[in-house]
């Protein structure tokens, strides 16, 4: 690991100021991606701004019909939150399937979505549930948040504060995990919301995306049968030693049908 200056601000304002003052500052949330990256010398920030001591950035709470998850909330705490489990069980189940127990004890939702790994689970929840991302500057629609491979709509120095998930009528997440890392080779969140069906796919492309044809088919008939023959084009999907683009395209259909069946079964 290269050297860096470490900061532990006590407020969001102090964190933003430290980030602005740093030559090449980086926010540290749970560290489950950042610390391995630093250890491999794949990144060399001048300053690390640790958000771990800022009060009020973690925790799950209800806000009307929505669930609001603080940016520093650990995956394990989303998985075990009574509010998340009752209002959006698909969200709690998704959090419970990230990495392994020790990763879930440290990793945070804010860190995960700011990193925007194309195979991470949370992006499927943010887009699939039609969430909004609240930062120290503004609110960003989940549909607009992810902009590319490890790229988001966040501006320089902007810090995520929370993510608001409106509760759907029913939803489920199904993923085909990489057996070693538990990252999604393909993961699909299907949500039947008050305003239509949303299908969000992670792991398959360079960023999370919605499967419009499936959404339309499910809008008329929310059943696995309605998307029996549906898939997505394999053009441009990820290819690696784990799965070809064609295999991933096929998995999108399989995972979507599993998710619909699980959501429909309640």
């Amino acid at each position: 690991m290269y050297e860096f200056n470490y900061h532990r601000p006590g407020t969001l304002e102090a964190a933003a100021a430290a980030l602005a003052a740093a030559e090449d500052g980086q926010v540290l949330a749970g560290g489950q991606t950042l610390i391995p990256t630093l250890k491999q010398r794949l990144a060399s920030p001048s300053d690390l701004i640790d958000l771990g001591s800022i009060a009020g950035l973690d925790g799950v709470r209800r806000e009307g019909d929505a669930i609001v998850v603080g940016a520093m909330t650990r995956h394990a705490d989303v998985a075990s939150s009574p509010d998340a489990r009752s209002a959006i069980p698909a969200l709690a189940a998704l959090a419970d399937g990230i990495g392994d127990p020790q990763v879930r004890n440290c990793g945070t939702i804010g860190g995960s979505i700011a990193n925007a790994d194309p195979a991470a689970d949370y992006p499927a929840a943010v887009v699939g549930l039609g969430a909004e991302v609240r930062t120290d500057r503004r609110t960003i629609a989940g549909d607009d948040f992810f902009t590319g491979l490890f790229e988001t709509a966040l501006e320089d120095g902007e810090i995520i504060v929370s993510v608001r998930f409106p509760a759907p009528r029913r939803a489920a997440y199904a993923k085909f995990p990489n057996p070693a890392s538990r990252y999604a080779i393909v993961g699909v969140m299907v949500a039947d919301t008050g305003s239509g069906v949303r299908v969000a796919v992670t792991g398959a492309g360079d960023q999370v995306f919605r499967a419009g044809a499936m959404e339309a088919a499910l809008g008329g008939n929310f059943s696995a049968d309605a998307i029996r023959d549906a898939s997505v084009p394999s053009d441009g999907l990820n290819e690696d030693l784990h799965a070809s683009a064609e295999y991933r395209a096929h998995l999108v259909g399989v995972m979507a049908r599993r998710a619909v069946a699980a959501a429909a079964a309640g």
Binding site: L28, G31, I35, P36, D50, Q102, N105, C106
Partner: peptide, 8 residues
């Protein structure tokens, strides 16, 4: 429980 190799 946490991985002490992945925490400062």
């Amino acid at each position: 429980s946490v991985k002490a190799c992945t925490m400062l």
